[in-house]
Nucleic acid binder design. Structure first.
Lengths: 142, 142
DNA sequence: GCCTTAATTGAGACATCGTCTCAATTATAC
DNA sequence: GTATAATTGAGACGATGTCTCAATTAAGGC
């Protein structure tokens, strides 16, 4: 079953784009693919070093930049802290402006808008981000 | 005419919330209100120093954090660079993942979704951010 | 398998971005 | 005007991210 569900992974995208598949890169990609939350770049480094101990910080950032340029990843901020998200990810966030806490939701309305914008701006749209900002119950003191 | 259009400014919000209206703060607020683009925090500092020369960096960041906590401002990133946007701002962006260029558009679909999420999460929603990510024509080499 | 070669790497200096402390200043209520 | 607590700037500090350069290594041709 899990075999049948196999999708094209990040590494396939990388090598398809002409980049080498090195051990350091594999470690970073594996961490990203196994991550169940939005990781902090330093957290990616920490986790990837468990797989490939000699890994350098620069390599992590370089790999992240590569994936971003290919449209596979996007840098976001959750409560002031830098994070990484797959662009294909389906969910979005409510973010509290005071405490930075975030809550996820699934709804999404951008189908036709996406089409139209892609045409208007001659843009190859890879994904999108929808975030609502406001104050959570705790921070309103309720 | 311009008198009639006068809206409640950032400074009114600040003092209504119990914060003092000092000269350094006024300078920062004025810069934000006159800005026609999404400013980089360091650019806010630079411009505000033209109004109030002695202004310190910390004061700028403190004022920005204050406004963010009140739900009047939100930090965004455009092409990896930190920027500030009024939460009430009506427009959104297409951002190129490769070169960081951004394009604005006006369409917006989140009315009812906003309502529903506010209820579900007991959240006071102040604004939202919608960004599409992809590759612009130049970066696709077309 | 073994070269060749250009892409990739890690270390660590460096740059940028943002926060904190603390003594001095100042807006506001009285 | 005075008292008082909020606010300030300077500059150290911390966090985040970039760059250089010599050493290493993946991938293609043999």
């Amino acid at each position: 079953m899990s075999q049948l569900r196999q999708e094209i992974g990040l590494s396939e995208h990388l090598s398809a784009a002409g980049y080498r598949l090195t051990a350091p890169r594999r470690a970073v990609l594996q961490v990203l693919e196994e991550a169940r939350t939005h990781l902090h770049p330093e957290e990616v480094l920490k986790r990837a070093r468990l797989i490939y101990p000699g890994l350098g910080r620069a390599t992590v950032y370089r790999t992240l930049a590569l994936l971003t340029g290919l449209g596979l990843l996007r840098p976001i901020r959750l409560g002031g802290s830098p994070r990484l998200a797959r662009v294909t990810e389906g969910h979005h966030h409510l973010v509290c402006l005071a405490c930075g806490h975030s809550f996820s939701f699934e709804e999404c309305l951008e189908g036709e808008l996406e089409e139209e914008l892609a045409q208007r701006f001659n843009f190859k749209i890879k994904g999108h981000l929808l975030e609502f900002y406001g104050l959570c119950a705790d921070c309103r003191g309720e």
